[in-house]
């Protein structure tokens, strides 16, 4: 019965289906247009762009703008290219993502398996971190960083992003662990596992999908952040996004659009990569957290 019904669906739907796919392909092309513009213009010499050939393919193909954006472009005072700032961003994102994810998982574990008085209220308060606009906390945060002696450092930025990311990572893990069978925790308690042993040996190994969701979310947000980077890191300590801005906004000399395009793609590459590598778990992980409950 199932076979025959799919048969009919295909036969009657052929025309409609073709139309649907046609429309979808058109939309896809339209959405890909900016990427196309960025790619082709990053691969042609500057005169071809200033000559008005924004949409056309390069007449002379060159990777010179990429090399320049990466290692020799003038950013701020030094002609260092984006490279050092790229590493700034990496050394900020990796610890920030790791710490906020681990802490979020711990929070979720405590909030679901070691319930205490007012835990739901505490969780509700933590959720404020998801909704408070960034701008509100700029000045208090600057004061805190100054007080801790972390102003202008990468460690300071890591702290800011961990604090801000905790709301979301806690939300993810709490909802995931809420449907995680409590009997497993009890069995482990009887087996003699300690608080952290239960966490490391039982809960974390079963948290793959939600960890992927959390990592993608945090990575994208922290990597793309501009406001905190611009506010709390200065000069050589700035992350990629701020450096890209400095590159593009520089008021001296000729505007090298091809270099700007190459730099912009470089800045977007890591998040793109994370999506491609882990993206298929993203939807799956979100489902696992929500549907089961």
């Amino acid at each position: 019965m199932a076979v025959s019904s799919t048969d009919t669906a295909i036969r009657t739907g052929r025309v409609t289906r073709t139309l649907i796919y046609l429309v979808l392909v058109l939309f896809a092309l339209f959405y890909l247009l900016p990427l196309y513009v960025m790619m082709v213009n990053s691969l042609k010499p500057l005169p071809e762009i200033t000559g008005g050939g924004m949409m056309s393919l390069p007449q002379i193909w060159t990777i010179e703008p990429w090399l320049k954006a990466w290692s020799t472009a003038q950013i701020g005072v030094e002609p260092t290219g984006l490279r050092p700032y790229f590493w700034n961003s990496i050394s900020m994102v990796v610890p920030a993502v790791a710490i906020s994810t681990i802490l979020g998982a711990l929070n979720g574990y405590v909030l679901t398996k070691w319930r205490f008085r007012f835990d739901t209220i505490l969780f509700g308060l933590m959720l404020f971190a998801c909704f408070i606009p960034f701008q509100i906390v700029l000045i208090p945060m600057a004061a805190v960083l100054g007080f801790l002696g972390l102003a202008g450092s990468t460690a300071g930025l890591v702290l800011v992003h961990v604090v801000y990311g905790l709301g979301f990572s806690t939300l993810y893990f709490r909802n995931y662990y809420a449907v995680f069978p409590t009997e497993l925790v009890r069995a482990a308690q009887i087996d003699g596992a300690s608080f952290f042993q239960i966490f490391w040996r039982i809960l974390l190994p079963s948290s793959g999908p939600i960890a992927v969701v959390c990592v993608i979310w945090q990575f994208t947000n922290i990597w793309n952040d501009f406001l905190f980077g611009a506010s709390f890191a200065s000069g050589e300590g700035a992350p990629m996004t701020v450096a890209l801005n400095n590159l593009v906004q520089s008021s001296t000399g000729v505007k090298e659009y091809n270099v700007h395009f190459a730099g912009a793609i470089l800045a977007a590459l890591p998040t793109l990569l994370v999506y491609i590598v882990a993206g298929r778990y993203f939807v799956r992980g979100l489902m696992a957290g929500s549907v089961k409950g």
């Binding site: 069978p181 009997e183 009890r186 308690q189």
Partner: peptide, 28 residues
Amino acid sequence: PSNRNIAMVFQSYALYPNMTVGQNITFG
């Protein structure tokens, strides 16, 4: 619970999903 020298079999069995049967048995 771990110091009472008791063992418990749960309704849902509560086997650790990430471990093999052997690891489940010897975890305690």
